[in-house]
Simulated scan of single mutants.
Amino acid sequence: MSPDKMRYQANQIATFFASQPEDEQIDGVADHINKFWDPRMRSQLFEIADQSTEGFKPMVVAALAKINRPEKIGSAG
């Protein structure tokens, strides 16, 4: 998936959760991504965000700390 499409999808989730109570928004974004994005998508999200969080809504950036980062395949000895 292109980085622009990845940003767009993550930002769409944040747009949805913006209508939720403020104390539930970040957890809602992280929970949704953890439940519905496969490890490859989450891995790509972190590859993009580790380079730059530019283009991501602040709610997505805040949720990154709560999103399960997949382990890199082949990274263990």
Rank of each mutant, 00 (worst) to 15 (best):
L64V: 08
E54D: 12
P58Y: 07
A18K: 07
L64T: 09
A30L: 00
A18S: 07
P70V: 09
E71V: 07
Q20I: 08
I73M: 14
P58A: 07
V60M: 06
Q25C: 11
Q44N: 09
A14H: 08
Q20E: 14
S19L: 07
A30E: 01
V29Q: 04
G77K: 10
A18C: 04
N68V: 13
E71H: 13
G55L: 08
M59R: 06
D50T: 15
Q12V: 11
S43I: 01
I26Y: 07
Q20L: 09
K72L: 15
G74L: 02
S2C: 07
G74V: 01
M41N: 11
F56N: 00
Y8H: 14
G28H: 02
F17R: 14
F36G: 01
E47A: 01
H32T: 02
G55M: 11
H32M: 05
S2T: 04
D31L: 00
A49R: 06
K35M: 12
G77D: 11
S19Y: 08
R40S: 15
D38H: 05
F56T: 00
I48S: 01
Q20H: 12
P21C: 10
A30C: 03
S52W: 06
E24P: 03
P21R: 11
P58R: 06
P58K: 07
K72S: 13
Q9Y: 13
K72Q: 10
D50G: 10
F17W: 14
I48C: 00
L45C: 12
K57S: 02
T15K: 11
H32L: 04
M59K: 05
F17G: 13
D38R: 11
P58T: 10
D27L: 02
A14V: 04
I48M: 01
A10C: 12
Q20S: 12
K66G: 02
V60A: 05
Q9T: 10
E71C: 09
A49I: 03
S43W: 08
D23L: 12
A62M: 13
G77Y: 11
M59D: 05
R7D: 02
D38N: 07
K35F: 06
K57Q: 04
D23Y: 15
T15L: 13
Q44G: 11
G77P: 14
S43P: 03
E54H: 04
Q9D: 14
L64I: 08
A65H: 00
A65E: 03
N34Q: 06
N11S: 09
A62G: 14
R69Q: 15
R7A: 03
